[in-house]
Amino acid sequence: MKLLKVLAVTVAVAMSSPVLAAGEAPAPPNARFGFNSFFGSFDRGAQQRGFQVYKEVCAACHGMRLLSYRNLLDLGLSEPAVRAIAAGYTVQDGPNDEGQMFERPARLSDRFRSPFPNEQAARAGNNGALPPDLSVIVKARHDGANYVRALLTGYVEPPPGVTLADGMHYNEYFPGHQIAMPNVLNDGQVEFADGTRATVDQMARDVTTFLAWAAEPETEQRKQMGVKILIFLAILGGLVYATKRKMWAEVKH
């Protein structure tokens, strides 16, 4: 038992020190996203508004190449609506019988169209900086959802004495603070269909919810299944332990 205790304590100490992201940026504040909780699920309204923010603001520079238009059905949008969204984009197909590549409206099975054909084009169009693909951005950053939200709302005036490099912007939560992405969210920038006021904070929260879903679309199914499995294991554990007690009752050990 003593050995067990020592082990438990040492393991706990070793594990409670996750490796911190580099840079001197402060830890992002906890935005208390519902999907981060134990039974967490996504707010459909926030997801849909978040997609709208992505589509109208972020998508100008950032692709989401791992997503397909059919994935939007998971946001609670109707099939005709998603078909219409897809048809609003053109994708390259072909070659046709004449050997030519051609453009056609996107279908449900097509991947999201990326704003730039390749990395070089993206850098050329963005002052040498590469806007990262956002498909799994929330998984690819430490404390992803809180970080993305903090970053989007973290544009402040640079403190005195800091000189920004050409084309750079000051962000409180970006490692190193100098970020090539300008502040893109302004109050009232998009018009939400459900009447929600498009404040910077609202848009940042909504688009983060959308991105968190995009990174881990299995979240809801995973957590629901996990709860069922833990309940099952609790019952099975009780049964197995009772059986063990009964069996060992006649044996002194």
């Binding site: 833990l230 294991l233 332990y241």
Partner: peptide, 18 residues
């Protein structure tokens, strides 16, 4: 061993699902 195994699966499940 079965007792330990169920406890182990519970810890495993906590990690995998949550």
């Amino acid at each position: 061993d079965s007792v330990g195994m169920v406890a182990y699966f519970a810890l495993f499940a906590l990690l995998v699902f949550f």
